[in-house]
Design a protein around this nucleic acid. Structure first.
Length: 591
DNA sequence: GTGAAGGGCCAC
DNA sequence: AAACGTGGCCCTTCAC
């Protein structure tokens, strides 16, 4: 592909070019950078293209290694990037949005992300790749050469081929967007694509913001667990080697407590009837007869705390900001949920001893908001079940209210056991729970569990019907859809009953879990607009929860903006069931 | 030494 | 496959 491009090295040319391109509906957008993380490197080039006319802005010509944030001559570029129109087309737009966000101080206005579009179209197909080269080859049949991607973008003078490569990447996404847009439309994915695109910039900003962690607090917690761990490990070692006389005699053959194989052997030597797996849920029932099992579970708990949530979390703190800047994958799961890594801020233990270490910086406060039972409300909306909806509308404790309806007693007479049971059942239903599993988590016999499930679905006939239909649809249509239209295709072997059953459960769960993701993402876009220009910044999201940090002075207004954004987002999809958002203002991420 | 697989467990 | 869904991270084990 031959590309006409203009290298821009002076303010006047930049002003002219931005003026010229500002009337376009769409512009290809790309950046070339010296590193992968914007805090580590320099932003060298910004490219914009309408497909025929491409500009390559050399930022070194405006302020070499300097702070380009303050350079006035770049204002036309900032304006163009910030504007909702033209829409900026980029592949993995979060990357470029972070770089211009950090170095130019702008939030990219409208975006069309060709990577996300490709992910939505592939609908969870694990075999499809989503690099620019893969997507361009799949949708345009053109080859993209990435040879220059790793070249030195900090050289005084860039080579002709470097600049041409840079220009091509911005130009190619223009025809690519055309093809992807057609497919999005044909597949009914326009609405969900809009939601996804609109939360790219909020997520880019969130990653730049990072989440402040009090390192002292974290270390203190760790040292407590360390002390515990040493005692527990010693005791467990003693108990396990009791079965191997010579081991304790010579003190030599220490058992590796982290090795399932060695621990299982030792347990067998002690005469413990261990099941095929030594997972906690299987061992738990043995704990009352065999103290060693209780000790093992105790050990596992502290070991997990020390490894997954130990010193290593602090390795991710950026010394320049004192904050953790994790990586969020916008379509982390086929359901549309985010995933998070390095570190995974979505799996920090719920206990206050951990969460209180994540806090607001001096002078600031955290606003923590989460949807109350959002997945059950989505299920209520989908099923249209009047009784289930009424349990939400009544405004009473939902699980107690459900227990009352299932057991046929007044809410005031619901026992704690009944409530707890209804709660487990309510959660399980969202995953397509069966009697066997229900029995194991409640301690009921399978027979009793079956009866209660029958009673539950007799009470909520609409739920039963919707869930059955969703399961059947998953098998016949080999796909599921969320309220915003997100699509997940299911692959299974028709001769495998297990796979069919699994597909049915997926068909029940995906629309629910996925709609929850749709709602959260929509809320992020609304929130981003609502807090613009204020002290508030997004710092974390956990599936149905949003954490914002703001100045103490703006705590109240930020709480309102957060709650309103989340409520409005949910109400776009949930019409018949009330939405409840719990908001708390606190210095710490624990309540 | 490196990487994949398996087991286990944290979150929602 | 925990016959309950979605992730990521850590450890051991085993193959290369």
């Amino acid at each position: 592909m031959e590309v006409y491009f203009q290298l821009i090295e002076e303010p006047e040319k930049l002003r002219e070019a931005c003026e010229r391109l500002s009337g376009e509906k769409f512009l290809g957008f790309d950046t070339e950078t010296s590193e992968l993380d914007p805090r580590d490197g320099v932003l060298r080039l910004v490219q914009l293209s309408n497909g025929r006319d491409t500009i390559v802005v050399d930022l070194f010509k405006f302020a070499k290694y300097g702070d380009i944030k303050e350079i006035n001559e770049l204002e036309p570029l900032r304006k163009l990037l910030e504007a909702k129109r033209p829409v900026k087309i980029a592949h993995n737009a979060k990357f470029d949005a972070k770089w211009v966000g950090h170095h130019l101080g702008v939030d990219v206005g409208g975006t069309f992300d060709t990577m996300i579009a490709s992910q939505l179209i592939s609908a969870g197909d694990q075999d499809r790749r989503h690099s620019l080269a893969d997507v361009a080859s799949f949708f345009l049949g053109t080859e993209v050469d990435k040879a220059e991607q790793i070249s030195d973008w900090t050289a005084d003078t860039l080579s002709g081929s470097q600049i041409e490569y840079a220009a091509k990447d911005a130009a190619i996404v223009v025809p690519l967007r055309q093809k992807l847009a057609e497919r999005l439309k044909a597949d009914g994915l326009e609405r969900v694509a809009e939601i996804e695109f609109d939360c790219v910039t909020p997520i880019a900003r969130m990653e730049l913001n990072g989440f402040y962690i009090d390192q002292e607090c974290w270390r203190e917690q760790l040292s407590k667990v360390k002390v515990e761990q040493e005692t527990i490990a010693f005791e467990l070692q003693e108990m396990l080697s009791a079965g191997v006389a010579q081991a304790s005699l010579f003190g030599a053959a220490q058992i590796n407590l982290d090795s399932q194989a060695q621990v299982s052997d030792a347990l067998r030597n002690l005469g413990v009837p261990i099941p095929d797996s030594t997972r906690a849920w299987q061992l738990q029932p043995l704990a009352k007869d065999y103290p060693v099992i209780g000790k093992l579970l105790e050990y596992r708990g502290v070991a997990k705390a020390l490894t997954s949530f130990g010193e290593n979390i602090l390795d991710f703190v950026d010394p320049r900001t004192g904050r953790i800047h994790a990586d969020f994958r916008q379509i982390g799961a086929p359901t549309g949920r985010f995933s998070c890594s390095r570190p995974n801020l979505q799996q920090i233990p719920h206990g206050p001893e951990y969460r209180r270490c994540f806090r607001a910086e001096e002078g600031n406060t955290l606003i923590v908001a989460d949807y109350s039972q959002i997945e059950l409300r989505i299920l209520a909306e989908f099923s249209g079940d009047e009784k289930f909806i009424e349990a939400f509308r009544s405004g009473q404790d939902f699980h107690a209210s459900a227990a009352a309806q299932v057991f046929g007693v007044p809410v005031s007479d619901v026992t704690p056991d009944q409530r707890s049971f209804a709660k487990r059942l309510n959660f399980g239903v969202v995953y397509g729970i069966g009697a066997q599993r229900l029995a194991t988590i409640t301690g009921f016999s399978e027979r009793e569990a079956e009866n209660v499930l029958r009673r539950y679905f007799a009470t909520y006939r609409g739920l039963d019907e919707w869930l059955r239909a969703a399961g059947e649809r998953a098998v016949t249509e080999r796909a599921g859809r969320t309220a915003a239209g997100r699509l997940a295709r299911f692959r299974f072997d028709e001769d495998d009953r297990g796979q069919i059953a699994s597909t049915k459960r997926n068909g029940k769960n995906m629309p629910i879990q996925g709609t929850s993701a749709d709602i959260l993402k929509r809320a992020l876009a609304l929130l981003h607009d609502a807090i613009k220009g204020s002290s508030a910044m997004l710092v974390n999201i956990v599936h149905d929860e949003i954490v914002v940090e703001c100045s103490e002075a703006e705590a109240e207004i930020t709480s309102k903006r957060l709650k309103d954004s989340m409520t409005a987002a949910a109400e776009e999809f949930i019409k018949r069931v009330p939405i409840d958002v719990d908001v708390s203002v606190s210095k710490e991420w624990s309540r």
